[in-house]
Each structure stands twice: as C-alpha cells, then as structure tokens.
C-alpha cells in the first residue's frame, strides 16, 4: 500500500514538474520566489537600514519566442526597524524624545520582459536578464513611541533583474530560479525621494498548460 501511495505521489510530482524539453515559445511560465531585500541610498540612510527577510514575488511570463518572454510580476516586501530613544525636532519650537519605529511595505505590480539566451537548449544552467516597469503600492508607517500612523500611496517602479535558472533535469521545463533585482521605487513624500533596494531571490519556476 505504501508503495502504491508513493508511486501515485511520484507520478503527480513528475507530471507537475517534468515536461519534455522544447522551446518556450507560446508557453506560460509561473515563477514563485522568496525575496531578501536590502535598502539602498536614502531609503537606507533616512528610513530603514536593516535588510528585510520577509518578502516574496511571483511572475507569469509568456514566451514570445525561444528567448524572449513578456508577462506580469507582483511582489511583497516588508521592512521594519526600531531606533533607540533619541531627541527629534518635531516643530520649530518643539523637540520630542522617543523611540522611532519605521515600517515600510512595498507591493510592486510590473509589466516585465525577459531574455534568456539558452532557454531553447538543454543547458543545465540558463542565465537570464529581465526589465520591468509599473507601480508599487507603498505603506509607510511611522511611530514616535506609540503615536503615529500609516500613509498609503503608489509610486513608479522600475526593475532590472539578472540570474540563472537551473532545470530539474535535462528535459525538464521546471527548475530552480536564483537571481538579484535592482528596484527603483519612486517615493516623494515627507521629504523622501525613493525606496530603492536590491533584492536577492530564490524560488521555482514551472510551465502552465
């Protein structure tokens, strides 16, 4: 009985991931990734300098040709940092001693184009680059002590990505995806300019029939 269950389970897994190798043209691929993000520039120096281990992203790409694909990308990243008590100038004649907490959530929704020069081959490692543009929904929460609130807005976002795909097998169209993204996120509120960051991602990709 155990062997039967194991066999059925194996068939399900294989049918989900092990497709015969052929070109990506005309196919849809789903990619799901875990993201680890590191703030850059003024985002890092003025808002949060701690990296965010809480994030994910997903894309749904259509093969325009054997090398080019086009699709949409969505994600979520949660940044948080608590600063030790300090005195802040809160008005012309006013200062406040407080523990400052900053919390930022970004949710990009992008149109994305990808280029994978070896996608039509059986290469065990397939490099790729991608460019994306769209908007990010941004929640910025700031507290002095327990006093503060959240501001929600949207900002233009551009993304450049590079990485590698490692198919599960020579003839598999599913595999592991590892790479990095540079994210430009415009944010012109409260005197800030952007929420730029670099994120590392790792996950899986699989074709959708």
């Amino acid at each position: 009985m155990k062997k039967l269950i194991s066999a059925i389970f194996s068939v399900i897994i294989l049918s989900a991931f092990a497709f015969h190798a052929n070109a990506q043209k005309g196919e849809w691929k789903l990619s799901l990734n875990y993201n680890y993000s590191m703030p850059l520039g003024s985002f890092k120096s003025d808002i949060i300098d701690k990296s965010s281990p809480l994030g994910f992203s997903g894309s749904f790409m259509y093969g325009l040709s054997d090398k080019f694909s086009l699709g949409i990308y969505g994600g979520y990243q949660d940044y948080y940092q608590k600063f030790p008590r300090a005195v802040y100038q809160t008005d012309n004649h006013e200062v406040t001693s407080a523990v400052l907490s900053n919390s930022v959530q970004t949710m990009p929704i992008l149109l994305k184009a990808g280029f994978s020069p070896l996608a039509a081959t059986h290469a065990p490692v397939q490099p790729y680059v991608a460019l994306g543009a769209g908007v990010s929904i941004i929640d910025f929460t700031q507290y002095l002590g327990e006093f503060g609130g959240t501001n929600s807005s949207a900002g233009f976002t551009a993304q450049g990505s590079a990485g590698i795909k490692i198919p599960f097998g020579k003839f598999s169209k599913s595999g592991v995806n590892i790479g990095a993204d540079y994210n430009y996120i415009s944010y012109s509120k409260f005197g800030y300019n952007n929420l730029n960051n670099v994120s590392l991602h790792a996950g899986v990709y699989l074709p959708l029939r």
């Binding site: 948080y80 809160t90 407080a98 523990v99 907490s101 919390s103 002590g145």
Partner: peptide, 22 residues
C-alpha cells in the same frame, strides 16, 4: 504576507511607548 507584517506597536516595551515633548 500582509497578515505577517510586523506591527511596530507589538515590538515596543512599555517604556518605549512613551514620548516626552517639550
């Protein structure tokens, strides 16, 4: 993931909730 978002207020000690304004 939104449900997993860290709520800053849940990460403050009683002393850290206080502010002193002059």
């Amino acid at each position: 993931f939104t449900a997993c978002t860290k709520d800053p207020l849940n990460h403050l000690s009683t002393e850290e909730t206080r502010i002193y304004v002059t």
